[in-house]
Nucleic acid binder design. Structure first.
Length: 580
RNA sequence: GUGGCGGUAGCUCAGUUGGAUAGAGCAGCGGUCUUCUAAACCGCAGGUCGAGGGUUCGAGCCCCUCCCGCCACGCCA
């Protein structure tokens, strides 16, 4: 009996290798409706259609060859309907799969792809001198999950936080710091808020008169000319901001390999202007240097401005310089931008420009991908704000999630001591915020709801974490470690055992979709279904029964469910609990 | 105006390159704790998949037309 980690992929390969069909034939094996079996191959139908052949006959012929090849040990197969091939795994097959894949390491090995190369994941990207707010949550959470996914896939991953640490706002900020004699070496407890307020007053002054505006522009010019005092102020502002970011990243368990902000590229944009002009891509237009794409419906006339009319760079120029740096210095073969969908025009123009520019120069073109996502909305369907209409700070949002979780833990498990309830609340609260974001298709806007994300019902972090905690609890009560006392296990019998085992085997096929489109919500869907299968099993089948063979097989199911749930949740960036 | 994303149960959303009788959760109704965590489980009910055409053995998914919502479109990022 051949046991495939991913039975869908295994069956597909098995069919392909024996069929005498043309090269373009794909058997298209996927998870089937349980009514028909575990997996179904649908590929015969479109193949036969294209050739006006009889699909049913072709299916019969193909299946006969697969059966003869002897790879279907433990797998029952049959033709159904117009030419579907259905496969049903025997309980023995399911059992052997669980025996084989008995640890997170083996699951990871099973998932590993041929994924080679170096990928830079560009995510989070807050601005200095500003609080991180709810608008950063999606990029941060989705970006980290994608970074983990790619690492799982076997790629070298570089997490790069491209912070907004350069630009016109520093003129106002520096002016305000000087004007108020603000002591950057001894900032208050809420330093970033103070910087944000200073910026506000600088901005007000900038708007107040032409003389004021001129004065502020002068501070900016001095900064750009590396004036010592202004550089010192700017450097301190950056340090203070980074400390504040790091508190949040630390809490979320996110560790950037690089934090190279826009300022890092300020001396690297000249080369961009030069090369883009040389290869005829960039042209002067209304005093600015811009790139048009004549073959494109809109970008033929909608310019990509790489240098402003006043000679200053902008995010197009720094983004171009950043790509060059990542390719030349970091060896990136792929760059992924986890940025909200409102910037999709920018990235489309950026990528088009890079393709032409790199082709002209003979540079190695990396794969460029914009992983976009929608806006976080409040329950009124408008962008998420505080009751007063202000921006929701990320720090406060995380605090509230943890507080709410603490209240729930205290209500549900009052017997646990306070320290443990606090640490449980941290995991549940942060996990809930992350999971709520990840479990939704990233391309659409998402409605932020405290009640929904912290609910124990439905597709939520607490529901999944609860399943994990219950499994841990079984082992704790039995004084066993996961994986122990499985010897002599008998083959699965009860409907709940079989449903759970089948769901465990669906891990590999589910992950394929997650990898191919970088869509974490598919992993969430899978983990939710797995938790549901476990909860049903748990309710209907007592694990610690007297009969040893039954107990052993149920312990095995618990251990494997735990391994898959924890592996999956960790890929998503969630921590798990042994008690809650 | 051009383009992007969306419109699926009362609400929030899934629906894997066209597959078999469109699925969850919440809300509603009804059951289940002397037994490993009831933060759970089981059941019932709920649909002209925005509208209309088309393609074919088969369409929520592909093509065309139209309606509605959000977003982006020259010097912010």
């Amino acid at each position: 009996m051949q046991i495939w980690f991913n039975p869908a992929a295994g069956l597909e390969a098995a069919i392909k290798s024996v069929s005498a069909l043309e090269e373009d034939f794909r058997s298209d094996v996927r998870i089937a409706d349980p009514r028909f079996g575990d997996f179904q191959a649908n590929g015969i139908l479109p193949y036969a259609k294209a050739r006006k052949a009889n699909p049913r006959a072709l299916a019969v012929e193909t299946l006969a060859k697969v059966q003869e090849s002897g790879t279907l040990g433990g797998i029952q197969s049959e033709i159904a309907g117009p030419g579907f091939i259905n496969f049903t795994l025997s309980a023995e097959y399911l059992f052997n799969w669980l025996v084989n894949f008995d640890s997170s390491e083996k699951l990871s090995a099973g998932m590993a792809k041929e994924g080679a190369g170096t990928v830079v994941v560009d995510f989070s990207s807050p601005n200095t001198a500003k609080e991180m707010h709810v608008g950063h949550i999606r990029s941060t959470v989705i970006g980290e999950a994608i970074a983990r996914l790619l690492a799982q896939k076997g790629m070298k991953v570089i997490r790069d936080n491209h912070i907004g640490d350069w630009g016109t706002q520093f003129g106002m900020l520096i002016w305000a710091v000087k004007n108020e004699g603000y002591d950057l070496d001894h900032p208050g407890a809420d330093a970033v808020q103070e910087l944000q307020d200073l910026y506000g007053r600088g901005y007000a002054h900038y708007k107040s008169s032409d003389e004021a505006a001129a004065l502020i522009r002068e501070e900016l010019v001095k900064l750009q000319d590396a004036d010592a005092e202004n550089m010192r102020i700017w450097t301190r502002i950056t340090e203070i901001s980074k400390q504040s970011f790091d508190r949040i990243y630390g809490r979320l368990g996110i560790d950037f390999d690089l934090t190279l902000g826009e300022s890092f590229y300020r001396d690297r944009v000249e080369r961009i202007y030069k090369e883009l002009s040389e290869c005829g891509l960039a042209v002067e237009s209304d005093g600015a240097l811009v790139v048009f794409h004549p073959e494109h419906k809109r970008f033929a006339t909608q310019p990509f401005i790489v240098r402003k009319a006043d000679g200053a760079s902008n995010y197009a120029s720094t983004d171009l310089a950043t790509i060059l740096y990542r390719v030349e210095e970091l060896g990136a073969t792929e760059i992924i931008y986890v940025v909200d969908s409102r910037q999709s025009d920018h990235f489309e123009q950026l990528f088009l420009t890079v393709e032409k520019w790199f082709a002209a120069k003979g540079y190695a073109l990396p794969k460029l991908k914009h992983v976009s996502f929608g806006t976080v909305l409040g329950e009124n369907g408008k962008p998420f704000k505080t009751k007063e209409g202000g921006t929701v700070k990320l720090r406060e949002l995380l605090d509230e999630a943890v507080e709410r979780s603490y209240a729930m833990v205290s209500e549900k498990s009052p017997d646990l001591d306070e320290a443990e309830r606090r640490s449980i609340a941290e995991v549940v609260g942060l996990g809930s915020v992350r999971y709520a974001d990840l479990s939704q298709n990233r391309s659409s806007d998402y409605v932020f709801s405290w009640d929904k994300m912290l609910s124990l019902e439905g597709n939520t972090a607490p529901y999944l974490l609860y399943a994990v905690a219950r499994i841990h609890s079984i082992f704790r009560k039995a004084n066993l470690k996961p994986g122990q006392n499985e010897a002599g296990a008998s083959v699965f019998e009860s409907p709940e055992e079989l449903v759970l085992a089948r769901k465990l085997l669906a891990f590999g096929p589910s992950m394929d979709g997650v990898f191919s489109d970088l869509r974490p919500h598919l992993l969430c869907n899978y983990l939710y279904e797995l938790s549901g299968a476990f909860s049903s099993f748990y309710s209907a089948n007592r694990v610690m029964v007297d009969e040893e063979t039954v107990r052993a097989r149920r312990l095995m199911l618990c251990s494997r469910t735990l391994a898959v749930l924890e592996t999956g949740l960790h890929i998503l960036g969630l921590k798990t609990l042994s008690r809650m």
